[in-house]
Structures are given as C-alpha cells and as structure tokens.
Design a protein around this nucleic acid. Structure first.
Lengths: 227, 227
DNA sequence: ATACAATCCTTTGTATACAAAATGCAGAGA
DNA sequence: TCTCTGCATTTTGTATACAAAGGATTGTAT
C-alpha cells in the first residue's frame, strides 16, 4: 500500500459509447435543444456524433425506458411530448417521494450530514445573492442531494433524481425568478430545522409545499409559453 | 365506420425482437429461472433464443435501466443480486407509492370502477377458496390494477407495476400461505370500503399495513431460504 | 383539378464481421 | 511448490451490411 494509492489511474474514465450517447441525448432533450416531437433518426445522429448506429440504438433504448423518447413502430424514436397532464403526474409522484425522503432522512440522518445540510442551507442563501441562476441551481441540487442521500434508500434516490431531471428546464426558469428566492430560503430553513429536530410531520409538509410551489410555477410557464 | 370495425386485424401483433427478448429475459429473472449473479452472455443467449446479438444487447440495455441486471464494464451483464437491503428499499418506496395511489383513487375513482372494485374483492374471496395460488394471485393483481388505474396517473401506474413485478417470486410464495388469506380478505375489504367512502386516511393506512405484511413475509422467506 | 396507383427513397430492424480488452491456463523460473 | 509471464480463448464494444416496411413523390387517368 502507499505506492498504489499514488498511481491514481483514472481507470474509471472509460465509458462505453452508448453511455456517452445516452448522456448527450438526454442532456439535449432536458435542455430543450432537442424539442418534443423531433424525430431522432439513427444515421443522422450517428454521423453527427461520429459513431455508428449501434451505440445510438442502445442509447435510444435507455431513453425509451426513461420516458424521454417515444418509439413509433418501424418509424423510430422521437422526443417525448411533454403535456401538462404528464408534468402533473410526475410532480404528483415526486411530491410523495420527496415527502418519503425527508421522513426517512429524519430517522436516518447522521451528525455529519446534519452539518452538511446546515452548510448547504447557508450556501444556498449566499448563492441567491449572486443572482447567478446556475450557481443557485447547483446549491439547490446540493441541498436536495444531501436529503435524499440521508434517506439511505438507493432506489428512492434514483427515482427522485430521475424525476428532478425531467423538470430540469423548468426548474431553471423557476429559480431565475428572484421574487421567489426569499420564500425558497424560508422553505429550506424549515425543512432543515424539522429534519434536525426529527419532526417528520413538519418536514414532510414543508417539502410538499416546496414542490407545490414549483408545480404552480411550472404550470404558469407552460401557459406563458403557449401564449 | 362499421366495416373497419369488423376487420379487427391484429396489426398490433408486431413486436420487435428486442421486446420479445426483453420480456423473455425479464420473465426468466423474475421467476428465478435466471438466478442472481448468473452471467448473461450475448452469443449464448442469442443462439439459445435463435436471434442475433443485436436484439439481445438492446434488451439488456432495457433490463439494466430497470435494475434487473448489472453491467460490469467489458465483462457484460449479470442478473442483479437481490439483497435484503435492496428489497427493503423497494418495499419502502412501494409503500409510499401505493399509499399515494389509494389516496388519489379516493378522489378520482368513477362509479364503474367502484363497482369493478367491489367485484374484484368478491372475486378475490372466491379465489382464496380455490386454493390455487395462481388464481388467487391473478385476482389480487386485478384488484390492485383497478386501484392504480383509478388514481389516473400514468407515471405512478408504471412505477407501481415495475415495483410489484420485482417482487413477483416472493408474492407468489406469500399468497400460497393459506393462514394469511383471511387477513388479506379483510385488508382488501377495508381498502375497498374506504376508497368508496373517500376516506383517504383509512385507505392509506390499510394499504400500508398490507405492504408491511408482505414485507414481513418476504423477509422471512429470505431468511428461510438462506437457512 | 383531383384521386389513385406505382415506384423510389428513406429509415428501421436484424444479422454479421472485426477489433480490443479481459480472463484463464500453461509453462518457465525461482 | 509457488509465482510470474505470455499466449490463447472468450466476450464485449463497435461498425457495417442487408432486408423489409413506410412514406413520399411523380405520373396517369378520370
């Protein structure tokens, strides 16, 4: 030992092309670069990304299962339509899962994590000062990450992360709205305090409010865009 | 209209090979035919199922995202290990989602569905009399299907179905245990009644108890198998 | 001008071929 | 006997080739 620790080979840098393609397409869809309804044609994507059709196809299979693309038999894939119903469905589920996460976190959070959570709250407050949506978003993500991690449930973590990512583009817009910042800070504080005090009831209510506010904002955005 | 209705071509019979392979492998894993830790080698599977490697690979990508197989870089896929932690995680989430489902069902269930639910309850009672685990399981699935459908949330439906399927093999064993039948019937009745009466609180508690009982049984089974 | 039909072209679905990495085994040396 | 090294085999990762289905376009007939 000792020597091996220095080697520090980034052996884990290897990623199959399918995963690269998967992440790329996913990113494209979530940021809106690839628009809903847009067809995903294999040769097209393959030449564009400089790979063959095989990794593209495998990536599409993954996106399909995540619900980000819709398959039409013998016609191929297209970026899934986002309907209002669809979003409400996702948020409805996410609300329940986030509530579960904070309740579990109340029971299982460690001392270190409590500290990390406190730090993350402060960090978020500072980030709102920066007026940089990206920084704020990162702080927000960090905070929520600590909570779901503290829930000690891998399946839950994966689900919550998947669902948050689906709202990526909307969350970004939401966080740009500075009038919401103060209430966000307040919500985070309540969540933090109730988790530390192991007050499941309050924590769960607070996170539900948190999601509900996001929902309202997102629904507004949809109408705004349509108009 | 009229004429076209008669044609009734089963045009939708077409399924890409990848989906056939997917379903086959999935079934194999869930029934325990393919055991945890078993390697899934592509050529092997391909010759066995009489197809080429391509559909096999695409099916594996899907299974991977469902968490049924684990990928080891440059080594391929193997059937995911089922740990006790893993099962507890799934059940913990399922508990919350099922609770959400009944609560939503309380609000949204239609008159027809109420009738269907009543029928399904009776059907289940009759099924327990048959002593045929398969028949009983079917009746149980039917009942739960009606509930999640009544929740009117497609995302939720998909998640709940996925999670139930993951416990397929255990559920089967559970339902074989005749000593549990009476309490199962009782639980179903409570759930049914509270949904009809739109009593979310009771419905949610009842379904949670329902899942908790399943959990106990499953954990017991695991210890029994290990011993 | 419109409707219908044949044909071509695009695109997916599937199979196969080739390259690179990893594993296992055997043999040589200490 | 044990270990290390090198080779052979296996298996994945990626690319390409071929077939069939769908859609579009063009031409023709009414």
């Amino acid at each position: 030992m000792g020597m091996n620790d220095n080697i520090q080979i980034h052996m884990d840098e290897y990623l199959p092309l399918r995963d690269v393609v998967f992440k790329t397409l996913r990113q494209g869809i979530l940021t809106g670069e690839l628009k809903p309804g847009e067809r995903l044609m294999e040769i097209h994507l393959a030449t564009r990304l400089g790979v063959s059709r095989t990794p593209i196809r495998e990536a599409i299979r993954m996106l399909e299962l995540e619900g980000l693309v819709t398959m039409i038999p013998r016609r191929g894939a297209e970026v899934a339509q986002i309907t209002e119903k669809n979003l409400r469905d996702v948020l409805e589920v996410r609300r329940a899962l986030d509530a579960l996460a904070v309740e579990l976190a109340c029971e299982r959070i460690t001392g270190e994590e409590k500290q990390a959570l406190a730090d993350a709250c402060e960090e978020f407050e500072r980030a709102t000062g920066s007026k940089d949506a990206k920084v704020i978003t990162q702080a927000d993500v960090k905070l929520h990450d600590i909570i779901v991690t503290a829930a000690r449930n891998e399946r839950l973590t994966k689900l919550v992360n998947d669902m948050s990512e689906q709202m990526y583009r909307y969350r970004f817009e939401y966080i740009k709205d500075e009038t919401k910042h103060q209430s966000l800070i307040e919500e985070h504080r309540i969540i933090y305090r109730s988790i530390v005090e192991c007050d499941k009831q309050t924590a769960s209510e607070a996170i539900k409010t948190h999601i509900d506010n996001q929902e309202k904002s997102i629904i507004n955005q949809i109408y705004a865009r349509q108009a």
